[in-house]
Design a protein around this nucleic acid. Structure first.
Length: 863
RNA sequence: GGGCGAUUAGCUCAGUGGUAGAGCACCUCGUUCACACCGAGGGGGUCACUGGUUCGAACCCAGUAUCGCCCA
């Protein structure tokens, strides 16, 4: 047995991470039956920069569960994934290399990005789509290595041979296969419809990716002319959309406007005739109570346009600028010249010019009234969303189908939620859906839709007759592969074919992580052993996106849940109670923390937080974790020095001393409590009860037993202490292993074979007869109390704890004294008391029993 | 506006009906042969507020306030 002279937690990661990898400690045993498998649908972190402390926090929660389940004898399927597909990666690649994708450019082999990215994106180098994708792949490969290094150092017990990435060929094949099946069943469809559109990224955006932000605006009071009467005034924050106006609308009960319903008015500047209509969504209290319907200013316009069956008069292009062509409804009218000033300008410029024109014409009344109002943004964007009409792919998610919505709510109810109250967010979201899931994106680095269209004689795509690939040929890239039955030279020519230009939203791929990681339709043997999975761990912020979308896909494809339970981690707050996020600039990089405090210490901090509870970033907690790990090394060193041999299987029957019996009896309680806590996914309680016992073990039992263990009271008494030490340590190491995998493994290696992480989770029964000795439970605590009372004497007298005591008396209630007396020899030895008498303090009716109190003669330093 | 959660010692947090807890920080003491990244002892709280239920409330109920998040 080799125990270091001065054990330290520093450097354990460098020793054990490679050792675990070499020994395959966390390898999934794919011969296990489903019932013996515990499978985890790991969140693939977005590879667009760096991991932050919040990742470390939540991934530790998962790892603790994985380690517990492994020790319970499960074959744990714990893969890692990388979400390297999609817009975040594109954005990072653009800024990192200083490039921008222009799909119309030809591929340039051997492209070398600029040495240093230009400051302004106007100076970015335009590259072909293929080059751009290559750069994405290059950078994500680098990022993934850095991520893996952090995870290995943190000690995640991942089986790295099952790592996947969401842009990999198997993931693309899975996403395309699932889509084709959705399409075949009618769950996926394409539609030409008004769509929320980010003009910066030039892509459609889904409901789940929206957020409201308060923005300053101003009500402009604008008159619409009526023949032979006063004008009708609307108040709008978007006067630039006057040329897109298709109607005015007021509430049907609004008496002010009832006479106007069914009449028409003429728009200012452009003199377009528009009807005045009634609709319940018009708010009489807002502005003048009558609103201008434009195609499209906001989502209410879309509702009105649809329900009132209005024409489309779009003025904005995909780039967020006014269209260059002169619209037909303006041509020939008085606004034709003005349009010349608007064509090609940004919304901002167009607003200035139209307002100026309205002032000049006298149609704008009074000063604009400034207001602050919520405006819809893409969560990753920084310009307000516009609405443009485009052809997009949708996936049914219950947003316009009551039966499906009810079925998905029922799935949510089937799922076990930790903590339970998080289910409200799911219900809330599903109940509030107002449309199907928009899954297409007009981007480059993503999974392409596996769809081509035949071109008719005019070269127009026949959307009604899409050409689809065979599943066996997946993944396909329609942009570079010809449609089945065509040759590449027929691309884009009349009578030939064209590729669907879009890629899937990232969530459309990551909603399939159980299928991707589990080998659906690729490795059916694996899939049958891991799916549906046991656990979906994730952040509470992506319930509406990742959790919900994964439920949707599994419900549609497999007719069931993708996993049985979900564990939601909370936020990390900085010391000012703000959520930590990159944009606030208050993030802490994990690697530096892991190096400063040690991985076990950082894990300890994470593990003290319960699921769903926000945690404060607190290096103080990490210091405590470090201290605990250090204590484990040092206490183990001492305990093993009591005469424990390598590979020792302690003789449980040798545990005879009442103090030792009591210690194991108390440990049995802890083993039970920790196991029960883990079973209800309450890792924080499992840690807390274990940690508390461990400190009692060190500070009380070890101190009380020292003399006896060294042989002061004979061999049998010493043997009892030694056996207790070995049994307790072997148990404690396993209880702590999920939390402090490095320190626990280090100590285990000193005297045990194999890895602590594949050792069986302790059970109370293995502690032997002592573990069940309920009558001895109180001895340890009572003896500790007596010792503490005697120590207090010395503390108050300000003398060393090794000072001898004479004529010591301990006062206290009869039952506590009786327990303490069973360990009298140990108490006397630890307190260095020459003699010890026990004085009963009678219980007083209605009063709490007194704590133990002691008195004694203290030998002076001179004596 | 609707929903969810939180509010306990200076700080970070446990505590779901029976005398308020832990760790950190603070004060005092101690070179005890596992550990100074240590040990011993100590001080410190109207459990956000107001009502109610109960013999008894940090805990249950109603309301209020503040903070955070989700949705509209």
């Amino acid at each position: 047995m080799v125990v270091p002279d001065r054990p330290t937690v520093d450097g354990l990661e460098d020793r054990w991470s490679p050792a675990w990898a070499e020994q395959g400690t966390y390898a999934f045993d794919r011969t296990s039956e489903r019932a013996d498998v515990y499978s985890i649908d790991t969140p693939p972190p977005t590879v667009s920069g760096s991991l932050h402390i919040g990742h470390v926090f939540s991934y530790t929660h998962t790892d603790v569960v994985a380690r517990y389940q492994r020790m319970r004898g499960k074959s744990v399927f714990y893969p890692m994934g990388w979400d390297d597909n999609g817009l975040p990666t594109e954005r990072r690649v653009q800024n990192y290399y200083g490039v921008r994708c222009d799909p119309s450019l030809p591929y340039e082999a051997g492209f070398v990005p600029p040495e240093k990215a230009p400051k302004s994106d106007r100076d970015f180098v335009q590259v072909s789509r293929r080059t751009f994708v290559e750069l994405c792949e290059r950078l994500t490969a680098e990022d993934e290595q850095a991520f893996e290094a952090v995870w290995r150092r943190l000690g995640l017990s991942v089986d790295w041979s099952h790592t996947y990435s969401t842009i990999s060929a198997p993931a693309r094949a899975t996403a395309q296969r699932a889509f084709l099946r959705n399409l075949a069943r009618g769950e996926a469809y394409a539609a030409e419809a008004p769509t929320l559109w980010d003009t910066t990224f030039r892509t459609a955006v889904a409901q789940a990716e929206l957020e409201d932000r308060d923005r300053e605006g101003a009500y402009h009071r604008i008159g619409f002319a009526r023949p032979g009467a006063e004008p009708v005034f609307v108040e709008t924050t978007r006067p630039e959309l006057v040329p897109a106006c298709v109607a005015l609308v007021a509430h049907p009960d609004d008496e002010r406007y009832q006479p106007l319903f069914g009449t028409t008015v003429r728009s200012p500047l452009f003199d377009v005739e528009v009807p005045v209509l009634a609709h319940r969504l018009a708010d009489p209290a807002k502005g003048s109570g009558i609103a201008m319907i434009c195609t499209f200013g906001d989502v209410t316009d879309v509702t009105w346009w649809r329900e009132l069956q209005l024409p489309t008069r779009a003025v904005l292009g995909w780039d967020g600028r006014f269209q260059r062509e002169l619209p037909a409804w303006i041509a020939g009218g008085p606004g034709e010249a003005l349009w010349g000033e608007l064509a090609g300008t940004t919304v901002h410029t167009a607003k200035e010019r139209i307002v100026a024109a309205l002032v000049e014409s006298g149609d704008l009344v009074g000063e604009p009234k400034p207001i602050v109002h919520p405006v819809k943004f893409y969560e990753k964007g920084d310009r307000p969303l516009e609405i443009v009409t485009t052809r997009q792919w949708y996936l049914r998610n219950g947003g316009r189908d009551e039966a499906l919505r009810a079925a998905l709510l029922a799935r949510g109810a089937e799922l076990a939620w930790h903590p339970e109250h998080m289910k409200h967010r799911y219900d809330n979201w599903v109940s509030g859906l107002n449309g199907d899931w928009l899954v297409s994106r007009q981007r480059f680095f993503g999974v392409p839709f596996p769809v081509w269209y035949p071109l008719d004689e005019d070269g127009t795509p026949r959307y009604d007759a899409p050409v689809l690939p065979a599943e066996a040929s997946l993944p396909v890239d329609p942009a570079s592969e010809p449609a089945p039955g065509f040759t590449e030279d027929q691309r884009g020519v009349p009578g030939g074919f064209a590729a669907d230009p879009d890629v899937m939203d990232t969530w459309a791929t990551s909603s399939l992580t159980p299928q991707i990681a589990g080998g659906w339709e690729r490795d059916e043997d694996l899939f049958s052993r891991v799916f549906p999975m046991d656990l979906r761990p994730q952040g509470q912020d992506i319930i509406r996106t990742w959790l919900f979308s994964t439920v949707v896909r599994a419900h549609l494809e497999h007719g069931g849940l993708p996993w049985g339970r979900t564990a939601l981690s909370g936020w990390i707050l900085d010391p000012d109670r703000k959520k930590m996020s990159k944009s606030k600039g208050n993030v802490v990089t994990p690697m530096a923390l892991l190096e400063e405090f040690g991985s076990d210490a950082v894990r300890y901090w994470a593990a003290t937080a319960r699921l769903g509870t926000d945690a404060t970033f607190d290096t103080g907690q990490m210091k405590i974790g470090r201290r605990l790990a250090m204590k484990l090394l040092n206490a183990s060193k001492f305990v093993l020095g009591l005469g424990v041999q390598r590979g020792d299987v302690a003789d449980r029957d040798a545990v005879t001393d009442p103090l030792d019996v009591s210690t194991l009896a108390n440990l049995a309680v802890v083993v039970r409590q920790a196991g029960e806590a883990f079973e209800r996914y309450d890792h924080a309680t499992a840690l807390q009860v274990t940690e508390q016992f461990f400190w009692t073990f060190c500070d009380q039992w070890v101190e009380l037993v020292k003399d006896r263990a060294y042989g002061a009271r004979g061999e049998a008494a010493a043997a009892s202490a030694q056996a207790t030490a070995a049994i307790a340590l072997r148990t404690l190491l396993r209880l702590l292993a999920p939390f402090l995998p490095f320190a626990a493994e280090e100590v285990w290696s000193w005297w045990q074979d194999g890895s602590v992480h594949t050792a069986p989770w302790p059970e109370a029964a293995e502690l032997g007869p002592a573990g069940g000795a309920e009558d001895a439970l109180g001895v340890l605590g009572a003896a500790a109390q007596a010792l503490s009372a005697l120590r207090k004497l010395k503390s108050e007298a300000k003398v060393s704890q090794k000072t001898e005591l004479a004529a010591a008396t301990v006062h206290g209630p009869a039952d506590v004294l009786a327990d303490a007396r069973r360990a009298e020899h140990d108490v006397r030895a630890a307190a260095r008391a020459a003699s010890l008498t026990w004085a009963e303090v009678p219980a007083v009716e209605g009063e709490q029993a007194a704590a133990l109190r002691a008195e004694a003669e203290i030998a002076t330093a001179d004596a």
